[in-house]
Amino acid sequence: MLLSPAAAGVAHARALPQGLAEEHAAYEREISHHTAMVALGQVATTGDRKVLRVLHLFPGTARQFYEITTLDGGGRSRWRRIKNPAYPVALGTWAVIDGTVFFFSSELVHGQDAMPDRVASFDLDTEEWAPTIRGPLSSSSSLGVGDGGVAAAGAGHPSDHMDWGELSLADMNGCLVVTHRTLASSMDLWFLMDVEKGSWVRKYRMQLSISYRHAEHTVRPLLVLNDGRIVLVHLGNRGSLKIYDPRTSSSTDVAEIGPCVAVGLYNGSVLSLANDAN
């Protein structure tokens, strides 16, 4: 079920279609044991809102089903099967930007990829998968320093950058970002500068004084403020919002949000919410 905030603080629920796509109906009993991910996005050319759903069957299988529906507002939506990507996608983290859904792909190209950071993308307009692109850690085997002191992809792998940790995807100010958090509580933010070329730039390396011993200590970036500070969300049983200042390399707690597993930003016009409620 999707909640659409409307005027006067009222939230209107919009139910997603019941059941499965027609082509998957025969697997209903098998799909009863699964994990699922849904991503909501809007097609810029038509204004259609679509929901992409990935069903991951378990235990002991990497089999996935992919379905999509268009929200028509009249209760007539249904799930439709879409073509599978060449390789399964990871469900732990994803981002939706300008009608494209981004995931980490399970594809690992021998001799090219040093980390599981290859990115898959699905176009909600054409309902087609694009070829995967190499992630920043695999495509940058050494770090050069570009204009403004930012690190750019080069050749060779720096030992300090390849420490294993947590990888996640984020939409920051309309740009796809891969975050790499190491066991040393360092977090790098890699911005995708050119989709066609697959070029990434590391704009930030943050030092976070947060223990990594517990799974609940997950930090995700939300946006960059006009003054250069970065808003972070600390997920877990005691969720909070933080602001990180690159000039002082320090973070400040600004709000407690309680238990949470994800936080997103609404990028549309607030003035349109009342019309959606009618």
Rank of each mutant, 00 (worst) to 15 (best):
L222T: 07
P136M: 11
D125I: 01
T182K: 08
R14E: 06
P88C: 13
I243T: 11
G144T: 14
V254W: 08
A170H: 11
T126S: 12
R81P: 00
V261M: 14
R238K: 09
E128N: 11
S185G: 07
N275P: 05
S199Y: 07
G9K: 03
V201Y: 05
D123W: 02
R205K: 15
A62N: 14
V145F: 04
A15F: 09
L241F: 15
E28H: 13
N226P: 06
R53L: 02
K50Y: 09
I243C: 06
S141G: 14
T182V: 06
L176C: 00
G60V: 13
G41I: 15
E67C: 05
L273W: 05
A184I: 07
E256L: 13
R181H: 11
M172S: 09
D113N: 03
L232F: 09
F102D: 02
A170I: 08
L57V: 14
G144R: 15
S4R: 13
P17C: 00
G47T: 04
L2H: 04
G41Y: 13
Y204N: 02
V261T: 15
A114W: 10
A130N: 10
R80S: 12
L143N: 09
D253N: 07
G135N: 00
F102L: 06
P59T: 04
D98T: 06
E107A: 13
S105T: 10
S209G: 01
N275V: 14
Y27S: 06
I31F: 03
H161E: 15
A130L: 12
T35V: 10
S159N: 13
E216D: 15
A262E: 12
L241C: 09
N226I: 11
L124D: 03
A274I: 15
M37W: 08
G258W: 04
I243K: 04
T69Q: 05
V89P: 04
A153K: 05
A184W: 06
V270T: 13
A15C: 10
A152P: 00
W164V: 12
V109H: 04
T70N: 07
E30R: 02
T182N: 02
H180A: 06
G228S: 02
R81A: 11
H56N: 14
K203E: 03
A114L: 11
N173V: 06
V119D: 01
H180R: 07
L20W: 03
L137T: 02
I210M: 09
G47C: 02
L40Y: 06
R80M: 08
L208W: 01
L192W: 01
T182W: 02
L91D: 00
C260Y: 12
L55W: 07
T179S: 15
A120T: 02
M115C: 10
E67W: 02
G73K: 03
Y66C: 03
L225S: 14
S140G: 07
P88F: 11
H161T: 14
H161M: 15
G264N: 09
A7P: 03
R76M: 02
H157I: 12
